[in-house]
């Protein structure tokens, strides 16, 4: 598929937002979106890990899995690669940047099991992206996820001071808000579609 890599980048942020169109990475999205501050940290961590793991998984897929003819193992291998990368990043950040560690670090272990990260790696295989496309797709999806959680956290902080009927409190209202946000993002789909 020969789409301009930059178009993929923009599309991944807005029209094909991994969270709001594919609804991936919901659990941490719902649980860490109570405050803007913590959602900022998680969003940054997701962006960072997503960008790098797509690049690594692209290499792993095309230079290990395909030549060895073990494409069926991609799920397991991708997950292992993501887990190892997260672990490594955590160690390096903890060592060299305490400030960054305390904004990002505590969220890193959460990301290992974030399905959006695995999803992006699997999409790049299905859609047969080249390396540049893959990396920009990963980065774009990361930014998209970041924007989505930041928006939800902002809204939830406002909601906190309002009356919410008992049956809607917590996850209920958050899911409705997410749904409306998803509708709003569909408004962008006139610009470009990549899937």
């Amino acid at each position: 598929m020969e789409i301009n890599a930059f178009i993929i980048f923009i599309a991944a942020i807005f029209t094909s937002n991994i969270l709001l169109t594919n609804f991936l990475g919901m659990c941490s999205f719902l649980s860490v979106s109570r405050e803007v501050e913590s959602s900022l940290g998680l969003g940054l961590a997701v962006f960072f890990v997503m960008t790098f793991t797509t690049a690594i998984n692209f290499v792993v897929y095309h230079f290990i899995l395909v030549p060895l003819n073990i494409i069926y193992l991609q799920y397991i291998i991708f997950i292992i690669v993501i887990a190892a990368f997260v672990q490594l990043t955590e160690m390096i950040i903890e060592r060299f940047s305490p400030v960054l560690y305390y904004t990002l670090g505590i969220f890193l272990p959460l990301i290992t099991v974030n399905c959006a990260i695995l999803g992006v790696s699997l999409f790049l295989v299905i859609r047969d992206y080249n390396f540049l496309q893959s990396v920009l797709y990963g980065a774009g999806s990361g930014i998209g996820w970041f924007i989505a959680i930041l928006a939800l956290a902002g809204i939830r902080q406002k909601v906190k001071y309002n009356y919410v009927p008992a049956g809607l409190q917590g996850a209920g209202l958050s899911l409705i808000i997410t749904g409306i946000m998803a509708l709003a993002f569909i408004g962008f789909s006139g610009i470009v579609v990549i899937q």
Partner: peptide, 24 residues
């Protein structure tokens, strides 16, 4: 399958052990 999966995991584990020695 078993060999490849364990090979790759082993390699990554080794990488992490080395990183642990260097960074931690």
């Amino acid at each position: 399958t078993v060999l490849i999966v364990s090979g790759i995991s082993g390699l990554l584990a080794l990488l992490l052990v080395i990183a642990d020695m260097l960074f931690a």
